[in-house]
Computed example of a mutant assay.
Amino acid sequence: MTGPEAKADLQHYLDTARDALLWKLDGLSEYHVRRPLTPTGTNLLGLVKHLAGVEAGYFGDTFGRPFPEDLPWMSEDAEPNADMWATADESREDVLALYRRVRSHADRTIDELDLDAPGSVPWWPEDRRRVTLHRVLVHLIAETNRHAGHADIVRELIDGTAGLRADNDNLAGGDEPWWEDYRDRLERTAREVGDRA
């Protein structure tokens, strides 16, 4: 598969990951979309903000098509992890609207460039910074899926919601007692093996 078919295939996988990430915020309170649930502060709204900045850079600056808005949390002098959480002044609507604008900008880059279009990732080491749109698409599919996986776990910790999409959780069939028995079996196995080690 080459050309437009390959690009459409890659875009489909990127869009699937983007949509999975956004679904994880549905129906949650402001507190829960911001709530840090790991020792490193991973939170749902921060993941969306982070990926907005990532897409703006990779599909913008890399191809000489900078995103037209300033994203100060992505600058070199920003405080560490400024892109991984939303401040009290940044509403959920602000972050989601930004993500939609960045996504639209990225999609225009994808639509208008060929897969072999050259780019340069300024923040990568000199020996690796020359890329193509194809490589950036693959990189962003991996990056977005990685963070969608983080979001899946964070959302499950908040209220038990898990899976790929609202209409297809992509999980083994089972009711709550089945899942409790399954988890208990895994815990017993882990303890048994751990005790033998």
Rank of each mutant, 00 (worst) to 15 (best):
P80C: 08
R146I: 06
P122H: 01
M84L: 15
F63N: 05
T144R: 14
L28Y: 06
P118Y: 00
R135E: 09
D61F: 06
R130T: 00
R92Q: 15
D94G: 13
R35Q: 12
F59A: 10
F67H: 00
L71A: 12
V48E: 03
R101D: 15
E55Q: 13
S75C: 09
R103Q: 12
D107T: 05
H139C: 02
V136Q: 05
R128L: 13
V136P: 11
E112L: 10
A97W: 00
P72Y: 06
Y99Q: 05
D114W: 04
E76S: 14
R92I: 15
H134W: 10
G60M: 11
N145M: 13
T40Q: 08
R129K: 12
P66Q: 04
L98S: 00
Y99N: 14
T40H: 05
A82M: 02
G60E: 13
D83I: 01
V136C: 11
L140Q: 15
R100E: 11
S75H: 07
E90I: 12
R128N: 10
R108E: 08
W123D: 15
Y31L: 14
E30R: 11
S120D: 10
A78P: 11
R108V: 10
L28F: 12
G119W: 01
L44K: 03
V121P: 03
T42W: 10
I141S: 07
V138F: 10
D70M: 00
V121N: 10
T42V: 09
F67R: 06
P66G: 12
E79F: 10
R130Q: 08
S104C: 04
E69H: 13
A86C: 05
A78C: 04
L44E: 09
I110G: 08
L113D: 13
L37Q: 07
D114T: 09
R135Y: 06
L45F: 05
E93C: 07
A88E: 11
D111M: 09
D94H: 07
G64K: 02
W85T: 13
G41L: 06
G46L: 05
W123Y: 12
L113Y: 03
H32K: 09
V102K: 06
L44A: 04
L133I: 05
